[in-house]
Simulated scan of single mutants.
Amino acid sequence: MKVLIADDDPQLVRALRITLAAHGYDIVAAPDGAAAIALAAKEHPDIVLLDLGMPRLDGVQVIEALRGWTTAPIIVVSGRTGSADKVEALDAGADDYVTKPFQIDELLARLRALSRRAGAASDVPLVTFGDVSVDLAAKAVTRAGQRVHLTPTEWRILEFLARNPGMLVTRQALLRDIWGTEQVADTGYLRLYLSQLRKKLEPDPSHPAHLLTEQGMGYRLLLEP
Rank of each mutant, 00 (worst) to 15 (best):
K2L: 14
L4I: 10
A6T: 07
D7W: 00
Q11S: 11
V13P: 00
R17W: 12
L20I: 12
A21S: 14
A30C: 09
G33P: 02
A34I: 07
A36H: 01
A36R: 01
I37A: 05
L39P: 00
A40K: 00
A41P: 00
A41F: 03
K42G: 07
K42V: 11
K42Q: 13
V48P: 04
L49S: 04
L49Q: 02
L52D: 01
L52N: 00
M54S: 10
M54F: 08
L57A: 14
V60K: 02
V60Q: 05
E64Y: 10
A65T: 11
A65G: 12
G68W: 06
G68R: 08
A72W: 03
P73A: 08
I75L: 11
V77H: 00
G79K: 01
A89M: 09
A89C: 08
L90S: 14
D91M: 08
D96A: 05
V98H: 04
P101Q: 08
F102C: 12
F102R: 06
I104K: 06
D105Q: 07
D105L: 06
L108S: 14
L111P: 03
R112C: 12
R116N: 09
R117S: 14
A118L: 04
A121K: 01
S122D: 09
V127C: 10
F129G: 06
F129N: 02
D131T: 13
D131Y: 05
D131K: 05
K139H: 15
V141Q: 01
R143H: 12
R143Y: 13
A144K: 06
H149T: 15
R156K: 09
I157Y: 03
I157H: 03
G166I: 04
M167A: 15
M167E: 15
L168S: 09
T170K: 01
T170E: 04
R171F: 06
L174E: 05
L175F: 06
D177K: 03
D177G: 08
E182T: 14
Q183E: 14
V184R: 02
A185P: 01
A185N: 05
A185M: 07
D186I: 14
Y189R: 02
Y189D: 06
L190A: 12
L192W: 04
Q196E: 12
Q196I: 14
L197N: 02
L201M: 10
E202I: 08
D204H: 08
D204V: 14
D204I: 11
P205E: 14
P205Y: 11
H207N: 13
T213L: 07
E214P: 00
L221G: 06
L221P: 01
L221C: 10
L223N: 09
